[in-house]
């Protein structure tokens, strides 16, 4: 039994008044709804509004039902949308849980700068965690291979960070349309104390009534963006004017072509392989991660409108840029069972 479930009603559980750390939030979005000078932002179309309402509902439900939620913040566009929705859900209060960033040490510097800027601007509790094994063993995707690097610096690190923080619920930005194995994922995805995901042991979800009862040590991953598609994410970013890391926009960048992937080549740790030519050209990224594992695309789309225009004619699914699941179908499921997010 979870502690709070005993003894009848849960009406005085975390949702009511225990979050004393919640202080009035100063509103600092680009668009200030309380200013008389700005033209009112046009209302969201009913489609995006419905998705937004659903996500806010999930945020509030988890925040109220769990002792210690955390939001996994990976700095990408989905995380940016997630953060924006969290701010909306708890307004006028501040976001009542920390953001957790698993730093592998190999993120693009532009991501780190953006992360710190957001934390500052929106008054967020930011927890950054790096697997100590990474530093002591100098783990690198180049010398140890991408899958070992990911296992240790991402999957293992996430488990360690969740254990250390004693978090019983972790918000993530995963969407069901991303990959076939996610189509059956629940909004509340149940994890064992070892953080394992057992596809056979998930709870049915009916209506929008979520079952947040867990035993000590167990946890859930909660996915407020489950029903969003990639196009929805971009349209929402556009409609809400959500800031994104500059990596999403095309800019002159140095890169090499390696294994069919355009690899960013400006990091001091980058070394060209024999025969490799460092090129320079207009490049942007469709997903963000560790730079040695994240392929860029040649593009001149340097504004949000241009990126979206490109997206609507593009027919390549976004995960293709990620080296991690380019092997056969089913690889994501394996990763997930092991606790990779």
């Amino acid at each position: 039994m979870p502690g709070r479930a005993e003894g009848g009603q849960d009406r005085n559980a975390a949702g009511t008044a225990t979050r004393t750390d919640e202080t009035m939030h100063t509103h600092t979005s680009e668009y200030d709804p309380h200013s008389k000078d700005q033209a009112p932002k046009p209302p969201l179309d009913p489609h995006l509004k419905a998705l937004e309402n659903e996500a806010i509902h999930i945020f509030r439900e988890v925040a109220a039902e769990f002792e210690k939620p955390v939001m996994l913040y990976s700095i990408g566009k989905d995380s940016s949308v997630l953060l924006h929705l969290a701010r909306k859900a708890f307004f006028p209060g501040r976001v009542p849980f920390p953001l957790l960033h698993i730093d592998t040490g190999w993120k693009f510097p532009e991501m780190i700068a953006f992360r710190d800027e957001m934390a500052e601007k929106f008054d967020l509790d930011l927890v950054v965690y790096t697997n100590p094994r990474g530093a002591s063993e100098s783990i690198s995707p180049f010398t140890h291979g991408s899958s070992y690097h990911t296992d240790v610096m991402k999957t293992e690190a996430l488990r360690q960070a969740l254990d250390e923080g004693k978090y019983d619920a972790a918000f993530g930005g995963a969407r069901r349309d991303e990959e076939a194995s996610r189509a059956k994922e629940r909004i509340y995805s149940f994890r064992t104390p070892e953080h394992r995901w057992d596809p056979r042991n998930q709870r049915p979800e009916l209506w929008n009534i979520y079952n947040g009862m867990i035993r000590k040590g167990e946890s859930v991953r909660a996915f407020p963006l489950s029903n969003w598609t990639e196009v929805d994410i971009w349209r929402y970013i556009q409609a809400e004017n959500i800031p994104l890391p500059p990596l999403y926009y095309a800019k002159n960048r140095k890169y090499v072509e390696r294994d069919g992937m355009l690899m960013w080549a400006e990091d001091p740790r980058f070394t060209a392989l024999p025969g490799e030519q460092v090129q320079e050209g207009s490049l942007r990224f469709r997903t963000l991660g560790c730079w040695p594992l994240t392929g860029g695309i040649r593009s001149t789309a340097s504004t949000l409108d241009e990126v979206i225009a490109e997206l609507e004619i593009a027919t390549v699914s976004e995960r293709q840029g990620r080296a991690i699941d380019r092997d056969q179908a089913g690889s994501m499921e394996k990763k997930k069972r092991e606790g990779y997010f």
Binding site: R176, S181, R182, A183, V231, E333
Partner: peptide
């Protein structure tokens, strides 16, 4: 296109509810 989980594929049956999106 709809196959999601290995366990199911192995057994040749589909369990549970999957959600799909189109527009």
């Amino acid at each position: 296109l709809l196959d999601g989980l290995q366990a199911e594929r192995e057994q040749g049956i589909t369990i549970d509810v999957a959600y799909r999106y189109f527009a």
